[in-house]
């Protein structure tokens, strides 16, 4: 057989140039990040005893603090519920406007999606800091933070759900002369209701997690006590709060998970 017929590997393929360059860039990024963040493992290991001292103090929780913690934990759940609900109510019209199969106007859809993307880039604590500045310290700031945070998340989940629905019922209603509102109420809502409730519960779970730290910046809930115990170096109280957060998150997650499984 003619030797020339055997495909020849190019230089790039032969010496794995792409892989090597990729690895080199990756290592360079790692090295750069380490320099940038001042990584100092020596310091880390010499001060490790301080870290373990802190852990051992946290290993002896101040159980009498439990009574004080219960009320703010409940407040945290209340904040999460109201915040998620407000966020969802605002998200519904936005998600309808952002859905490709309902709104044919690409400009409207683009503008709405752009706004939603902007809202989603903002981390929860950043929103909390802003809302504490706007409405003042207290759980109201927390509720607004969670409302905006869940609005961004839930409207994306919602419009993606709406885009996956079956077009048949919509066409049938339109053919029978229904207007847009009737199409949404009688063809869209019945198809998406279960997923909407499921996503609402999922967002609620995330908001319960998020709301536990919002108070650190003054936005109400258990976070206020977290900040208080940490700044007064009462790590035994911090431990009680962390255990309380763990318990409440596990309870909410399992309740919400079992509800979501029933909805499927």
């Amino acid at each position: 057989m003619d030797k020339d017929l055997i495909p020849k590997r190019t230089f790039v393929q032969k010496y794995h140039v792409k892989g090597l360059v990729g690895t080199f860039i990756f290592l360079l990024l790692l090295w750069g990040s380490a320099v940038m963040t001042g990584v100092n493992w020596g310091e880390f290991f010499t001060n490790l005893d301080q870290f373990f001292d802190l852990l051992s103090r946290m290993a002896h929780p101040a159980w009498d603090y439990t009574n004080i913690v219960i009320q703010p934990i409940l407040e945290t759940i209340q904040m999460a519920l109201i915040g998620t609900t407000i966020g969802t109510l605002i998200a519904i019209p936005f998600s309808i406007l952002a859905a490709r199969n309902l709104i044919k106007n690409a400009v409207v859809r683009g503008v709405i999606r752009f706004i939603l993307n902007l809202v989603r880039t903002l981390p929860d604590l950043l929103l909390a800091a802003l809302f504490v500045a706007i409405v003042g310290i207290g759980s109201t700031a927390g509720v607004w933070t969670l409302a905006v945070f869940s609005f961004g998340m839930i409207s994306k989940l919602f419009y993606e759900t709406i885009e996956t629905i079956d077009d048949g019922p919509l066409e049938a209603l339109r053919a029978a002369g229904a207007n847009n509102v009737q199409v949404v109420v009688f063809a869209v809502v019945p198809q998406v209701l279960n997923s909407f409730v499921s996503y609402f519960l999922y967002t609620f779970e995330i908001n319960v997690r998020a709301s536990t730290v919002l108070g650190y910046l003054g936005a109400g809930g258990i976070g206020v006590y977290l900040q208080r115990s940490l700044s007064s170096f009462r790590y035994d109280q911090t431990a009680v709060i962390v255990i309380a957060i763990l318990l409440i998150v596990i309870v909410i997650d399992s309740v919400s998970n079992s509800l979501r499984e029933r909805l499927q």
């Binding site: 001042g38 100092n40 880390f44 490790l48 604590l125 730290v213 977290l226 962390v242």
Partner: peptide, 24 residues
Amino acid sequence: TFPELVLAIMFIKAVGPGSFAGVL
């Protein structure tokens, strides 16, 4: 579930304030 902020504060105690605590 362990709040990331609390973790950051614990590491600040170990390595001092700065981005290394954030990395940890």
